[in-house]
Design a protein around this nucleic acid. Structure first.
Length: 294
DNA sequence: ACTATTTGACCTTA
DNA sequence: TAAGGTCAAATAGT
């Protein structure tokens, strides 16, 4: 606001274009940072339990075909549903390993979407009756991103075939070795709404999260690492709140809505494991988001 | 031979 | 009725 007011006062024939450009740049930078702070707050709004439990247990009339093609009225329970967005820039593409084995059973062009949606079900559906499914669709905004929607929980025993702690070790090794871009499998989960599976121990210990789409926050280090289940721990969330509620920030007011945040391409987590990234945020900004988007 | 994927047809849902 | 979701025969891969 301050920069904008300054710019406003400069709009006269005497103001130099360079001066105005500088102020414009500062305003744009502030907007970026503001959105980053909103992303932090989105962590809490996205994880509102209601958003994931609303479908659970609700009965719905439907008709299913029996062997004789007769239509039979039945009740069914809608499966619990989760969604997350995955950024993939490596060779794995949408077939990245999330620890479960999936069988592709369909592909569909979606209206007003540039990329088809792929349908997967758990490999153990027939053998163990596991009803978990997932849908994968390349993002329209950024071809490096995939929207993944999980439906139903795994009840199969043969799941989680991948030792994720080993994967994390490998990722940390790559990070420490400062491996270049070539031939490194990159997988960044940048948005997650209640991961459908019980996080493994190594995941909660290593939980790291970072903002997506915000170039200043997509560090080269993070983009070369493998992250799985990036929800912040309770301690980290508490830490976030502490930062946001510190004296420096006591005047900040957030007025976001979950929907707008979730739909924002900037929605994501900030990687708290990289301290200087947090330092990059100018937390002294005052934001009233309701005015921000009107 | 067995398993996984592709893809057009069919079914369900709103 | 259109769009999304699933089925299953054909095909590909091992």
């Amino acid at each position: 606001m301050e920069f904008a007011n300054r710019l406003k006062s400069k709009i006269d024939p005497l103001a130099s274009p360079e001066e105005c450009d500088l102020l414009l740049e500062k305003i744009l930078s502030s907007l970026d940072k503001s959105l980053s702070i909103l992303n932090l707050k989105a962590v809490n709004t996205i994880r509102d339990p209601f958003c994931c439990s609303k479908n659970e247990g609700s009965d719905l009339d439907y008709y299913s075909r029996d062997q004789g093609k007769n239509m039979v009225s039945k009740k069914r329970k809608l499966l619990q549903q989760w969604s997350k967005q995955v950024r993939i820039s490596g060779i794995e593409g949408p077939n990245y390993d999330d620890g479960y084995s999936w069988r592709k059973y369909g592909m569909k062009d979606i209206l007003r979407a540039n990329h088809p949606r792929a349908y997967y079900r758990c490999t153990h559906r027939n053998t163990q009756g596991c009803l978990a499914t997932k849908q994968v669709q390349k993002s329209d905004e950024d071809p490096l991103f995939f929207d993944v929607t999980y439906k139903g929980k795994h009840n199969c025993k043969a799941s989680q075939s991948v030792d994720i702690s080993q994967e994390n070790q490998k990722a940390n090794y790559n990070k420490n070795q400062n491996v270049g871009n070539q031939k490194v499998e990159n997988l960044n989960i940048i948005k997650e709404e209640d991961f459908p599976f019980t996080p493994l121990k190594s995941e909660s210990e290593n939980s790291q999260f970072f903002a997506n789409s915000m170039e200043p926050f997509t560090s080269p280090i993070a983009s070369e690492s493998l992250y799985l289940s990036l929800l912040p721990t309770q301690e980290e969330e508490f830490e976030l709140d502490q930062i946001l509620q510190s004296s420096k920030l006591s005047h900040i007011e957030f007025s976001t809505t979950p929907t707008s945040v979730i739909n924002s391409p900037f929605c994501g987590y900030l990687d708290l494991s990289v301290d200087d990234q947090v330092d990059n945020i100018d937390l002294s900004l005052m934001i009233d988001v309701s005015e921000f988007f009107t």
